[in-house]
Nucleic acid binder design. Structure first.
Length: 463
RNA sequence: GGAGAGGUGGCCGAGCGGUCUAAGGCGCUUGAUUCGAAAUCAAGUGUGGGGCGACUCACCGUGGGUUCGAAUCCCACCCUCUCCGCCA
């Protein structure tokens, strides 16, 4: 029997004596793409068990779902499993007899002819099964995560409740400039040449501008690793398709990614992808959780649906830098971890002395994979607006199911899915925007926030 | 990029067409022994699917093929190691 059921594709046998999940040394789980494919994003058993409740919870996102096809496919799937198992069982019994039988005997020959037919039935059964799985997958892969019960109802961003406000808008006795103007005037940002050497939405940082970006990255990583307990990761900036599926970007959002078709690789849209997938196909010992990582990476996004939006400046680039926080927790712990992680991101803004607010994304504004999301919006005087600078989400078991990231609950017989979380801590490009616009002076120069001074090589002002 | 070797359970490692429901060792868990421990002895110890359950099915890098039957044979691919070349 060639084709195992989809979940049986996993070969992770990682029972670890150590406290950390680890890939097997020579295992192919790292390299193979197929294992993590064909995994539902939502638990089909949960859906089948109570489709009404499931549909009602999903409806909070604003779009109705029709589960009839899916449920019918699931019934068909079970039938095929039962039939296939039965056929295989009978066949292996027959083969047991054949082992013992005289290979020249009529009995043997008759068995062989019979089994030749059974083998064909099994193969047909498997083909059907594969087709059913593929069809189910198509449904499941496109179903977004269930919103957390605590997520506020609402249709769009306008309905996101503001949970807290920190600091206040700076007052200027002059008209504050936009970061584009400041960056160009002070020789920090070169938008024109970015466009020349690459294209629209690419920018060159220069001199103290480049230094500021680097200082922010270091400051953020130092704070998260030194004070918030994160382990620093520097991941690959190219990932395979299995990783993109693991965190939920693929297959639905292929349009948003830069693909290297020839090599089957994708430029990371966020460090969330490589870092969460570090533990794809792995099982944690419960004592190892929670696991917290902080990772710097550039982020590459095609911004497919954003034509004409934020065309000026650093706000919306095809490449930007980000420090990302990623956590793996037990289900009981993820809500607490979500608050903590968001607090860690906020602490960067507070230390930089930037005014911001935290909003609770309503069900209609929630991302595809997220169950609950807090956005941090920083005040930008040059835009006269709050702009998202961090997005902190709890995915609950959505990504974990997809990426097969499990743990061994204390005393339990079966392994369970972990919860994954992540958040920007922070988007560096937008932080540069915030620093430039909030710290600008009447003389056109920009003061460097105190916490960054140790990273700026003696500079106290830009310009 | 060229040449060679190899991918088997938490780890090491045997197996090379049918008692593989994968030998053996190490590790781990539990029990016996002990005042306690070490040593020793015994049992257990992968992942996932289906079933209320008894139970059953799949998985030996991945995919495909041959066969009544594949960890074992054939093909393709991926990855690892060694040497050479190139290179930050």
């Amino acid at each position: 029997m060639g084709r195992p059921r989809p979940t049986a594709r996993r070969t992770s046998r990682s029972r670890q004596p150590a406290t950390r999940a680890r890939p097997r040394k020579r295992s192919s789980t790292i390299s193979t793409v197929r294992k993590s494919e064909l995994r539902p994003m939502l638990d089909i058993r949960l859906i089948a068990h109570d489709p009404e409740t499931f549909a009602r919870r999903l409806l909070r996102r604003g779009k109705g779902v029709d589960l009839e096809d899916l449920l019918a496919l699931d019934r068909r799937r079970r039938e095929l499993i039962a039939r296939g198992d039965e056929l295989r069982h009978d066949k292996s019994k027959a083969e047991e007899a054949m082992r013992a039988a005289d290979k020249q005997s009529d009995v043997f020959t008759r068995f062989r002819e019979e089994m030749r037919v059974v083998a064909l039935s099994i193969r047909a059964c498997e083909t059907d099964f594969e087709a059913v799985l593929a069809a189910m997958d198509e449904h499941l892969m496109l179903l977004p995560n269930l919103p957390d019960d605590a997520a506020p109802d609402g249709a769009s961003a306008e309905q996101n409740p503001i949970l807290r406000v920190v600091g206040q808008k700076p007052s200027f006795d002059f008209t504050p400039k936009d970061h584009t103007e400041l960056g160009e005037a002070l020789g920090l940002l070169d938008f024109e040449r970015g466009t020349k050497i690459t294209g629209a939405r690419f920018t060159v940082y220069r001199g103290a501008g480049a230094r500021l970006e680097r200082a922010l990255i270091s400051f953020m990583l130092d704070t998260h690793t030194g004070e918030h307990g994160y382990t620093e990761i520097l991941p690959p900036f190219l990932v395979n398709h299995a990783s993109m599926r693991g965190t939920g970007q693929f297959p639905k959002f292929q349009e948003d990614a830069f693909l290297l078709e020839r090599d089957g690789l994708v430029l990371v849209p966020t460090a969330e992808v490589p870092v969460t997938n570090l533990h794809r196909d792995e099982i944690f010992e419960p004592s190892a959780l929670p696991v917290a990582y902080a990772a710097y990476s550039p982020c590459f996004r095609r911004e497919a649906g954003a034509h004409g939006r934020d065309t000026k400046g650093l706000i919306r680039q095809h490449q930007f830098q980000k420090v990302e926080l990623v956590m793996f927790t037990t289900p009981e712990d993820s809500e607490r971890a979500h608050e903590a992680l968001t607090g860690h991101a906020e602490s960067i803004l507070e230390r930089l002395g930037l005014h911001f607010r935290r909003v609770d994304l309503c069900t209609g504004d929630l991302g595809f994979s997220a169950a609950r999301t807090y956005d941090l919006e920083v005040w930008l005087p040059g835009q006269n607006a709050y702009r998202e600078i961090s997005s902190c989400s709890n995915f609950r078991d959505f990504q974990a199911r997809r990426a097969a990231i499990r743990y061994r609950p204390e005393g339990a017989k079966k392994n369970a899915l972990v919860h994954t979380l992540n958040g920007s801590g922070l988007a560096v490009g937008r932080t540069v925007v915030a620093v430039l616009e909030n710290y600008q002076q009447a003389d056109g120069r920009v003061r460097i926030p105190e916490v960054l001074l140790p990273y700026m090589g003696g500079l106290t002002h830009l310009g």
